[in-house]
Amino acid sequence: MQLFKVIWNNTYGLLVDDGQLALGALAGLTATGAFSALAPPATVYAYTGPMLLVWTCLLVVSNLYAAGHHAARLVASHAVHTGTREVGEATGAEHRM
């Protein structure tokens, strides 16, 4: 059992760093699959790839925007907490979004 747990953790860690990003990618692939099953073939041949590419790019940008926003809040709260506008390192903060 322990062995399977270690294997699972290793495999999961290999593919997933941020749950939202991984779920977003899987959602995009599922939506692309649904589109290819429902749309007329000529549309599928032409638009499936661009659709998946645009989705992935939007996903990356929105995920990084959220990460940046969160980091900015951490910086601000650290500054407020220490009562200074000078921002230092918050190396101790380990926070999963």
Binding site: A71, A72, V87, G88, A90, T91, A93, R96, M97
Partner: peptide, 14 residues
Amino acid sequence: RMLPQGAHIAVRNI
């Protein structure tokens, strides 16, 4: 650009 000027943080698993 989202981070304040001069800010530097090192947060794991953000």
